[in-house]
Design a protein around this nucleic acid. Structure first.
Lengths: 216, 216
DNA sequence: CTACCTATACGGCATTTGTAGTATTTAGTT
DNA sequence: AACTAAATACTACAAATGCCGTATAGGTAG
């Protein structure tokens, strides 16, 4: 029987999580704290817990700080972040604090269950989109410290983004067309549209602006 | 129908992977290369592939180098490392090379299938044990023993570096010439020389390579 | 002194790129 | 059913680019 505690300020979401847990009879919900301090208080009373599902945004003491505290005092307890915030900073901080996994709230019951067993077996659990961000943090550590200023959003379609990525590699229209199995004419038209959206007039400017806006 | 290619030197393991693929009727096995170079050869012939399952240890050209090459030429193709080696260095290098996921060979068919659909949806896929190592690399970057492959030094003259920087901003020959108060012909000749030194054939590749070598 | 590198500069030519206009088909939304 | 966004594809032309050869002048490392 796997014992689970929940740290989550929103009552509705907490209930939803408890329900997900109750779907499985090898999982047992123990208690919930509505903020970091309350949660820690309850945990000190009863620390016979295997896994903690932790929200990030909470009053009093947030999920990151709470994770840090709990991991220090009860290092054997596994902590899964369960949150709606999947930006680089939160992911990075949660990992630094010692989280064993990072799931989005939309995670369905079977996936939640698998994540719980995975961490108990000594692994880590991440939803694919978070895994991707993790890899990107690893790939470009220098990008971490700086920008948060959100520039006016530029919307490129999926195809346009794909073509822009090819452009950034130095491929020409012909090669891009071959890769995507479309005609060079189409590639050119896409690029024309990309230029209009980004308000640029050549490849290099397009790639520069795209990187600045985190499209690439 | 998801088209899949396999890079794997061991015949038995390759067959095993093909069998796993054949379990699902939305997956289609296209071809296999027994080493990096052979694989690339086949891929050049038929690059209508969605996902590549890549072994790391291969003769001729290993999976890391092959991943790097393929990601540069066909950035839209997703690459999943599928290997028995899960040490920090291999994982780190595979990520740097651009891999979209990292699975152990013992991965069962349903998990392999999920990983494939995950990466096609733009996420990343990792088996829990690898995810853990990834988190640890992030947590303790200083512990990374990986002596980064020392790139052969490329020497550009002061003027050439200057021009390359202008190029990277998206300026054309005429504008660069005006900025530096020299003739466009000279700018073109400099760029020609830069291309030869960097062994590239257009602006974008030059800027890419220069950034990789910390010249920019 | 000489060989070599760097910076300067031109002409020529084939290819690629940037822009504009037009048009069809498909997928989603209202 | 009608509308819309996205992806597809073509033609045409001017401009920019990549690549070749050639040439001169200044600096420097043998």
């Amino acid at each position: 029987m796997i014992k689970i505690a929940v740290a989550e300020d929103n009552g509705f979401l907490a209930k939803a999580v408890e329900e997900k847990i109750s779907f499985f009879d090898d999982l047992k919900f123990k208690f919930r704290g509505a903020n970091g301090n309350e949660f820690i208080g309850k945990l000190e009373q009863d620390h016979n817990v295997d896994v903690i599902l932790m929200d990030i945004q909470m009053p009093e003491k947030d999920g990151i700080a709470t994770t840090e505290y709990v991991k220090n005092k009860y290092p054997h307890i596994k902590i899964l972040m369960l949150t709606v915030f999947d930006d680089d900073d939160n992911i990075f901080n949660a990992i630094q604090a010692g989280a064993d996994g990072y799931l989005l709230k939309e995670t369905n019951p079977p996936e939640l269950h698998k994540a719980i067993t995975d961490v108990l077996e000594g692994g880590a659990a991440m939803t694919p989109s978070v895994a991707l961000k993790t890899l990107n943090i690893l790939r470009f550590p220098e990008k971490m410290t700086s920008d948060k200023v959100q520039l006016e959003e530029i919307k490129l379609s999926k195809r346009e983004t794909e073509i822009l990525e090819h452009l950034s590699k130095g491929l020409n229209y012909q090669q891009i067309a071959e890769n995507l199995i479309i005609s060079p004419s189409t590639v050119r038209k896409h690029i024309e549209n990309i230029y209009k959206k980004l308000q640029v007039h050549n490849k290099m400017e397009a790639v520069q602006k795209a990187m600045k806006h985190n499209i690439l």
